[in-house]
């Protein structure tokens, strides 16, 4: 078992109180598994991704545990986390385009980063990995400003996986790219796993159709909780949670013309996480809601590997 997250709670401190961005999330990621973590903006998917590697100044670890390869991760203690960062758990951040120091040549930055972690740089290996993502070793002698956005992103992917981490978090890596680059990046992520450079991966995205192409498992988040988690095919073809169903049905289909069938959205908006309602957080927008939804539904396994947090689905 590569990653085990148990009842993880992370809140954001704000002037008006704690925003319960992550409220009791439990799931596992197996060795070699790629989990697509999908959800709309504000659902807590990025919070989940970042809190596994580095809580920022406003985030607070309120409860729950994270275990990676049998070792508990001290996610609330930034200094203690340093030992695991880069080596066991790494990240390709949302802001890859600006993740490189603008005033250092890339090769020098990589060397200095590795030196500061007490690791030695193997230039041949670095060149081999750059070649894997289609970059020549020339980029090492360049400044980030001399690279295109896509090139910078690929450089970041190479740098983040240099130490063969057992878990890689890819946070909205395709959001800023055009469709053809999205496909290339998705392929690169898949390649990282298939070549054994990273053991497992969590791909955070709002784009279910993209993550469907590379993920083994898709987990759908809603308002700080997991709504559903199942093998990718199952989530797309037979979703059980009403939110997932509405989400999938609101995706455009190839060949369907707008005149024949209008695209539907989900009516309503997610609840405020500053003071979220008791029970199921989707119940205000849910067409199936009934009395029992005032009670929080458990994230239960309804079929092997298929977890749903809904009373109706159980």
């Amino acid at each position: 078992m590569s990653l085990t997250v148990t009842d993880l709670r992370v809140h954001y401190r704000t002037a008006r109180g704690d925003v319960q961005a992550l409220d009791g999330v439990t799931f596992t990621v197996a060795d070699g598994e790629i989990v697509g973590l999908a959800g709309e903006s504000g659902s807590g998917k990025s919070t989940l991704g970042t809190s596994l590697i580095r809580l920022n100044g406003r985030m607070r670890h309120v409860g729950g545990t994270v275990e990676l390869d049998g070792v508990p991760l001290p996610i609330g203690d930034s200094a203690a986390m340093d030992r695991f960062r880069f080596r066991s758990i790494s990240v390709v951040p949302q802001y890859s385009m600006s993740a490189l120091n603008p005033t250092r040549k890339i090769g020098r930055m990589v060397a200095e980063l590795l030196a500061s972690r007490g690791e030695r740089l193997d230039p041949a290996e670095l060149e081999r990995r750059l070649a894997l993502v289609g970059l020549s070793s020339d980029v090492l002698g360049r400044y980030p400003i001399e690279l295109s956005g896509g090139m910078k992103q690929r450089v970041v992917m190479v740098v983040s996986t240099l130490l063969n981490p057992s878990l890689l978090i890819a946070d909205e890596v395709t959001s800023a790219l055009d469709v053809s680059s999205q496909k290339a990046v998705a392929g690169t992520l898949l390649g990282l796993r298939d070549k054994g450079l990273v053991t497992s991966m969590i791909v955070v995205t709002h784009d279910i159709s993209l993550v469907y192409q590379i993920a083994d498992t898709i987990a759908v988040m809603y308002a700080g909780r997991l709504a559903e988690k199942a093998p990718a095919d199952v989530v797309v073809t037979e979703p059980r949670h009403p939110y997932t169903r509405l989400l999938i049905s609101s995706l455009p289909e190839v060949g369907v013309r707008r005149a024949e069938r209008r695209l539907d959205g989900i009516p309503g908006a997610p609840p405020s996480l500053l003071d979220p309602p008791e029970g199921c957080r989707f119940r205000d927008r849910c067409p199936l809601a009934y009395d029992r939804c005032a009670e929080r539904p458990p994230f239960a396994e309804v079929a092997p590997g298929h977890f749903v947090a809904c009373w109706k689905a159980a």
Partner: peptide, 14 residues
């Protein structure tokens, strides 16, 4: 608070 600093910190740079 710049992105490159957050990235370095995420990778545990000194």
């Amino acid at each position: 608070e710049a992105d490159y600093v957050h990235y370095l910190q995420s990778l545990g740079a000194s």
